[in-house]
């Protein structure tokens, strides 16, 4: 388990992480979502032991991470733009990872490279950006570490590859102790892969929840209630995050169980109402709007 307790980190007087406290439990695909500049990359680099937190602690399986080889042996970090050696081929990186990570699964890596049609003898500099990311995701998976930290790694991967990686992740999670932690602002991609999400905003964690739980706790409903007084009563009863009205048709995003919301609406004798599907992006937008974030800035 990764435990973050009150982590703060500043750069040149700008607070990138502000008292972040969260836990990442094992056996899930954990997504860290957030607006641009929310501190996702900083958080991952602190988790990977690259950056020293100004305050707070990061513990991995009850071990402090920074400059702790034993803890870092359980982590593999794939940054936004992974570094590879000058003129290195895929095979060169494979050999280096074998030295660094004693549990590296060479045969699995070569198998996966075959499936993803990545030539081991090809220079990495000749690969496209997406193909390079595939190579490093595979290196990370095959490193045999318990935790794989991916920073914007899935940006630019096509949906087929994304689904393939997701299935590999699921296989790994089921077959061994493996917890991928993925940071991204691209909610659609995160929705494909993650089953648990932490929402980072302005250096702090707004919430950290299971994706399905989140979807069951926020609902989008459109309805027509002709009586303004009853509609006002409904607004008072529900925890409405967002409301749009066009003529008599209202559309709300509200917190609470599906049953509770439906019962409240039915009690107001609507002419019509229906529950609409809510995407992770809409949940994210709703949550960030509550804290005054401009929606236009987060559409990535």
């Amino acid at each position: 388990m990764i435990e973050m307790a009150g982590i703060s980190k500043s750069f040149d007087g700008i607070r990138a992480l502000d008292n972040v406290t969260a836990q990442i439990t094992e056996g899930s695909v954990y997504g860290i979502v957030g607006t641009n500049g929310a501190g996702k990359s900083t958080l991952l680099r602190v988790l990977a032991g690259i950056l020293r937190a100004d305050s707070g602690s990061v513990r991995i399986d009850d071990m402090e991470v920074f400059e702790n080889v034993r803890a870092k042996e359980r982590i593999c970090f794939i940054p936004d733009t992974p570094h590879y050696f000058t003129n290195a081929r895929v095979r060169d990186m494979l050999e280096y990872y074998e030295i660094i990570y004693p549990g590296f699964q060479r045969s699995r890596f070569t198998d996966l490279c075959g499936k993803f049609e990545l030539d081991l003898n090809r220079k990495l500099s000749t690969f496209s950006k997406g193909m390079k990311k595939q190579v490093f995701v595979l290196l990370g998976i095959c490193a045999g570490t318990r935790y794989l930290l991916c920073d914007e790694t899935f940006d630019g991967l096509d949906p087929v590859v994304r689904q393939a990686v997701k299935s590999i992740f699921i296989d790994e999670v089921l077959s061994r102790q493996f917890t991928p932690v993925i940071a991204s602002h691209n909610l659609r991609e995160m929705e494909d892969i993650c089953d648990h999400v932490g929402l980072l905003h302005k250096g702090g964690i707004l919430f950290s929840r299971d994706l399905e739980d989140m979807k069951t706790d926020i609902h989008k409903v459109q309805y027509v209630i002709m009586n303004p007084a009853k509609e006002q009563e409904l607004a008072d009863e529900l925890d409405i995050i967002k409301k749009d009205t066009r003529g008599n048709l209202s559309c709300i995003t509200a917190r609470g169980s599906r049953e509770k919301i439906m019962a409240a609406i039915e009690a107001k004798e609507p002419l019509f109402y229906e529950i609409l599907p809510l995407s992770l992006e809409e949940i994210f937008i709703s949550e960030t709007e509550v804290i005054g974030y401009d929606i236009k800035d987060i559409i990535g």
Binding site: I50, R70, I75, T81
Partner: peptide
């Protein structure tokens, strides 16, 4: 002097 390279080397399970 390169953020990418520092990320790479300092994330490895090797003492500085």
């Amino acid at each position: 002097h390169s953020a990418e390279k520092v990320d790479f080397y300092h994330s490895l399970p090797v003492r500085r």
